[in-house]
Measured scan of single mutants.
Amino acid sequence: MDALKSAGRALIRSPSLAKQSWGGGGRHRKLPENWTDTRETLLEGMLFSLKYLGMTLVEQPKGEELSAAAIKRIVATAKASGKKLQKVTLKVSPRGIILTDNLTNQLIENVSIYRISYCTADKMHDKVFAYIAQSQHNQSLECHAFLCTKRKMAQAVTLTVAQAFKVAFEFWQVSKEEKEKRDKASQEGGDVLGARQDCTPPLKSLVATGNLLDLEETAKAPLSTVSANTTNMDEVPRPQALSGSSVVWELDDGLDEAFSRLAQSRTNPQVLDTGLTAQDMHYAQCLSPVDWDKPDSSGTEQDDLFSF
């Protein structure tokens, strides 16, 4: 819950932080000083300027060897085509990944977070970031790969997607708890209302004896509580940590079903599988986004697919 609360507080303090972009060759504004600060901008989305290598189908939802083989196929196909790589912007948030063309600003792909089953910074092609997700059109699994400016960037994108998945799962947990509370309150309110109706004398007997209905007592009954809980029953509950912020979080049926399955089948359902080692994760978390744009010590960066 700490990640969720800190993310909400950060967004309320400075929503404009989320509009910064990394990996864009110096076009961005001043960047936060450390990885923790940038992680807090996830709610509205972190932007990464990358190059799209392509996509291939895979048979399993996750796995280092599986993704490595898929990336190898994608890279080989991209090299064989001889075409310049498409420059894209990857927007990562707890909602998922939005992929747009840098030149036309046209939407290429919009992947809900619950469809993503794996992401990684490839070991062999260490400047490549990739994720595996279920197609929104059918049940097939797709591996999408992107060329980053350097290994640090690939690791940073991988960690960002993993963190977005974690925050999304926490949102789901909060929403589920809130819905259970509202359902319980609604049920209790309905029981109270039913009890009051059972003990209320029939209207005919009131008229016969000349008694008047006590409207004041009726007004004191917990009807307002019942209506408050039943009027918006169809509205999706939102985490309290975000009250007053500009973010509107809505959970669709697909996300609810997917996270429910994860909660039942996995020990740590909030953790998205990645190909990063503990050492890689520690190294990337210690980086400032400013470091992502620094040239690798191995030599001059080449803006070309064939540089790796």
Rank of each mutant, 00 (worst) to 15 (best):
D2P: 06
S6R: 09
S6V: 12
S6T: 12
G8L: 06
A10S: 14
A10Q: 15
L11F: 08
S14V: 13
S14H: 10
S16T: 01
Q20C: 11
W22M: 12
G24A: 12
G24D: 12
R27N: 06
R29G: 09
K30V: 12
L31K: 10
E33L: 10
E33Q: 14
N34F: 01
W35G: 09
T36S: 02
T38Y: 12
R39E: 12
E40F: 10
E44S: 10
M46C: 09
S49N: 10
K51N: 09
Y52I: 07
G54C: 13
E59Y: 14
K62G: 03
G63A: 14
G63L: 05
G63Y: 10
E64H: 13
I71Y: 07
R73N: 13
I74L: 11
V75D: 13
V75M: 12
A76Y: 13
T77S: 11
G82W: 12
G82P: 11
K83P: 02
K84H: 10
L85Y: 12
L85H: 15
K87L: 09
T89C: 12
L90R: 09
L90F: 13
V92P: 13
S93P: 11
P94M: 12
I98K: 06
L99A: 05
D101S: 15
N102G: 10
L103H: 03
T104V: 07
T104H: 05
Q106Y: 06
Q106I: 03
L107D: 11
L107A: 04
I108A: 04
E109R: 12
E109F: 00
E109Q: 05
N110P: 04
N110G: 08
V111F: 12
V111Y: 03
Y114I: 08
Y114V: 12
I116M: 15
C119D: 08
C119P: 04
T120I: 06
A121C: 06
A121W: 10
D122Y: 11
H125D: 10
H125F: 14
D126N: 12
K127P: 11
K127G: 15
K127E: 06
F129K: 12
A130D: 10
A130F: 01
I132S: 06
S135Q: 11
H137G: 10
H137C: 14
Q139L: 14
L141D: 15
E142F: 07
E142A: 07
C143M: 10
C143E: 14
A145W: 08
A145H: 11
F146T: 14
T149M: 07
K150P: 01
K150L: 02
K150Y: 04
M153R: 04
M153W: 01
A154M: 08
L159F: 11
T160E: 09
A162Q: 01
A162L: 10
Q163F: 14
A164V: 01
A164H: 03
A164K: 05
K166H: 04
K166A: 04
K166T: 05
V167N: 11
V167P: 01
A168Q: 05
F169H: 01
Q173G: 02
S175C: 01
E177G: 09
E177W: 02
K179E: 02
K179L: 12
E180N: 07
R182A: 13
R182M: 04
A185Y: 08
S186T: 03
G190D: 03
G190K: 10
L193W: 03
L193P: 04
A195M: 04
R196M: 10
R196C: 10
D198W: 05
D198G: 06
C199G: 06
P201C: 05
P202M: 06
K204N: 10
S205C: 05
A208N: 08
T209S: 11
G210I: 03
N211A: 13
L213S: 04
L215G: 08
E216G: 07
K220N: 01
P222C: 11
P222V: 14
P222K: 01
L223W: 02
L223N: 15
L223S: 03
S224V: 08
T225S: 12
V226Q: 03
S227C: 02
S227E: 07
S227T: 09
A228N: 07
N229R: 04
N232W: 11
N232Q: 05
E235K: 06
V236D: 03
V236E: 06
P237R: 10
Q240I: 11
L242K: 00
L242F: 12
V248P: 00
G254D: 13
L255T: 06
A258D: 00
F259G: 02
F259K: 04
A263Y: 13
Q264R: 00
S265Y: 10
T267I: 03
P269D: 02
P269F: 01
V271L: 15
L272I: 01
D273W: 11
T274R: 01
L276F: 07
Q279M: 14
D280C: 10
H282R: 14
H282C: 01
Y283F: 11
A284Q: 00
C286D: 00
C286F: 11
L287Q: 07
S288A: 04
S288E: 05
P289T: 07
P289N: 04
P289H: 10
D291M: 00
W292C: 12
D293G: 06
D293S: 00
K294Q: 02
K294N: 08
D296H: 12
S297Q: 08
Q302A: 04
Q302T: 15
S307E: 08
S307A: 09
S307G: 10
S307H: 04
